[in-house]
Amino acid sequence: MNLTSQTEGQVLLINVDEPRIDASVAIQFKDQMRELSDAHPARIVVDLSRVDFIDSSGLGAIVAAMKQLGNGRTLELASLTPTVGKVFRLTRMDSVFKIHDTPAKALRAGAESP
């Protein structure tokens, strides 16, 4: 599981450099998300542009990654590929997560709000 992160102003941008978040890597994904996000205070945006596929275990791991943030911190998603977007729509999880077309739009959306 290859996750990298960079700080953009107040936002921690996490890149998922993996083609799949599935049952075989779901726990690793959740653990690495915790390590990367632990010390970060506010908004976290996850760039999923390289992820072609998630299954329900992967979806559960993304939900778990948001829940383990706690303390009013937010986890937002950017650049969902078609099949990943389908999983979010079919489970209605697209109404739970803030989803941006691109990481750049996610950063701009943050800058506009007070």
Binding site: G60, M66, K67, T91
Partner: peptide, 25 residues
């Protein structure tokens, strides 16, 4: 059955999406 997602953040389901996805598609 669809997982209930109209809940507070700590109660959001992390599983039981599978058979709903199968039956939907």
């Amino acid at each position: 059955q669809p997982a209930n997602i109209d809940v507070a953040l700590p109660e959001l389901p992390e599983g039981s999406f599978g058979w709903n996805l199968i039956r939907t598609v």
